[in-house]
Design a protein around this nucleic acid. Structure first.
Length: 552
DNA sequence: GCTCAGTGCGCC
DNA sequence: AAAGGGCGCACTGAGC
């Protein structure tokens, strides 16, 4: 594999340094910034891994120029993984500019003119960092797993940039009609829509509080208490329990007000342009390795507005999600044969019932959620002894992760992503709490210890689930590209959305069935990459639809 | 005028 | 029926 390291030089120039297997530079090409797309294109079919400081600083411009990259090495993301991985000898990784790499942030602004004049990335040496990272991986006893994780992470970075570039097809007219139907006509800026005004009048009358502001939790709480209602918070599920004529309009107000504020006309104006919703996805943005997002709340697009996500004319959306990803991942990583057997069923929870572990599907679900999240009280707590007897390896793995966390130890995912150390790495072995929080009583300390154990318990499962999903996504990306002929990215089947265990592909209608096949093959491949020959299934729910809302 | 924590709620 | 894990975002209200 040819590796080409891209380095920004002063005055907008770029050096492309080609390195041999041993890391020595064999050729340097000096380019003007505008020459990069042509240079990348000129590599033709020669397999190249592009090495750069940070995908968000390079790839959007290439995509704008119509150039797709097959594979890359993202030094920022790789650095973040390696710095925390228990599989890595930090002495091999650390160099003089390590603090700079530690602090490097992704760029999420679309307009290059808004880039800071002084980019901290420009003070870092990508060639040296690349060499250190390769040495750190090579020196690791788990270089296979680490290498897979870093490759998947880099592919994820490419997918994230491509999804922002292509955008999720979004019909502003459909969205607008939906808003008008629920809220009334668009109000003047800063005004409440008519339907909210009407509900507000009703609420104020019911509680005999003519100035009540339901948008203010404090004001609302005082108003409810003044009306004689025994509440200490104003959450919807708390209010649901109350018998009072003001409650139904209040709940309706909260629901519609949320829609208006989070995904109303302002959201449309800000995030939807030219028929596409474009937000920024941040691979590795969450400590567990899940993605975060930035802009438009892409990771919580309410089902309420999904009818507006509609494929282009002659195109379709292929929507796929994994059923019960995390318990399946737990079965695989713990190599628990009994749980893998239950996972052979399309419904893993039903499989647990068939296997005799529990009596009902509801018990199976609540028990597994408790095992993975640390619920020890009530229903899920009562399930634990039976689950432990039937699935000793799976339950043992999460229990051990919880105990390790309580002892203040670092845990890691299957591929080697390490959990943060408790107390933010301050070196305080008892710092199992929030920074700045007082030591408190021994009871407080115990409580924090157990809370950290619940975090590490969940970390190993959620983080390995994220690794499976990343492998799925990376493999699918390549399969879609091979499927699509010769056009640009957005003229072929391409990914437009990803959320933890769900993907959406925008595809020409005549290729939709093939896309469905590739989505399934990629899922099977992800299972093989993570769990080898261990027999664990990842069945998908896949739908070919015009609108995202039709997938459920 | 600004930032920041708390509250509440959308998603998995 | 919620809880137990992870997020982003809008808004309020307090403090600088």
């Amino acid at each position: 594999m040819n590796r080409l390291v891209l380095v920004r030089r002063g005055e907008g120039g770029i050096d492309a340094l080609e390195s041999a297997e041993d890391g020595t530079v064999v050729q340097t090409t000096r380019l003007p910034a505008a020459g990069l797309p042509g240079f990348v294109r000129a590599q033709g079919r020669r397999p190249v891994r592009w090495v750069w400081d940070d995908t968000t600083r390079w790839y959007p411009q290439l995509l704008d120029a119509g150039v797709r990259v097959e594979r890359c090495w993202d030094l920022r993301l790789a650095h973040a993984v390696l710095r925390r991985s228990p599989f890595v000898d930090q002495a091999v990784l650390v160099g003089s500019d390590t603090p700079g790499w530690d602090g490097l942030q992704p760029v999420t602004v679309a307009d290059p003119a808004l880039f800071p004049l002084e980019d901290p990335a420009d003070r870092l040496d990508p060639v040296a960092e690349h060499a250190r990272q390769q040495a750190a991986v090579a020196a690791s006893a788990e270089r296979g797993r680490l290498g897979l994780l870093l490759a998947a992470e880099a592919s994820g970075a490419l997918v994230a940039a491509e999804m922002t570039h292509a955008g999720l097809p979004w019909r502003a007219d459909v969205h607008g009609r939906l808003l008008t139907g629920l809220l009334g006509p668009r109000p003047a800026s800063g005004q409440r829509p008519a339907v909210l005004e009407r509900l507000l009048t009703e609420i104020r009358a019911a509680f005999a509080a003519p100035a009540l502001n339901p948008d203010s939790p404090g004001d609302l709480l005082r108003g409810l208490q003044a009306a004689g209602l025994p509440v200490s918070d104003t959450r919807s599920w708390t209010l649901q329990e109350l018998e009072h004529p003001g409650i139904p309009p209040l709940l309706e107000y909260k629901r519609l007000s949320r829609l208006h504020q989070a995904n109303g006309w302002n959201w449309l104006d800000t995030w939807v342009r030219d028929g596409r919703f474009r937000s920024y996805f941040l691979p590795g943005g969450v400590v567990t390795g899940r993605w975060a997002s930035n802009g438009g709340g892409a990771l919580s697009v309410p089902t309420q507005i999904r009818p507006a996500a509609i494929a282009d004319e002659g195109w379709r959306l292929v929507v796929a999600d994994v059923a019960q990803l995390e318990p399946r991942v737990l079965a695989g990583m713990s190599r628990d044969d009994a749980m893998a057997e239950a996972a052979r069923s399309r419904d893993l929870y039903q499989g647990m019932v068939a296997g005799g572990a529990v009596a009902t599907r509801a018990e199976a679900k609540v028990g597994m959620l408790g095992a993975m999240y640390g619920g020890t009280r009530g229903e899920s707590g009562r399930m634990m002894p039976r689950l432990t007897r039937r699935y000793p390896r799976a339950i043992g793995l999460v229990e051990e992760a919880a105990r390790a966390g309580e002892r203040g130890e670092v845990v890691h995912t299957l591929l080697g992503r390490g959990s943060p150390s408790p107390g933010g790495g301050s070196g305080d072995p008892d710092g199992l709490g929030e920074p700045g929080e007082q030591a408190g009583s021994p009871g407080d300390r115990d409580r924090r210890r157990r809370a950290w154990g619940r975090f590490t318990r969940n970390f190993v499962v959620q983080g390995t689930g994220a690794e499976w999903a990343l492998c799925w996504l990376a493999d699918l990306r390549n399969r879609l590209w091979r499927l699509g002929g010769t056009g640009r990215l957005e003229q072929r089947p391409h990914l437009v959305f990803f959320l933890h265990d769900e993907v959406v592909v925008h595809t020409p209608e005549q290729l939709a069935d093939e896309v469905v096949e590739e989505v399934r093959r990629a899922a099977a491949e992800a299972g093989r990459l993570l769990f080898g020959s261990f027999p664990i299934d990842f069945p998908l729910d896949v739908a070919v639809v015009r609108s995202w809302a039709d997938a459920d």
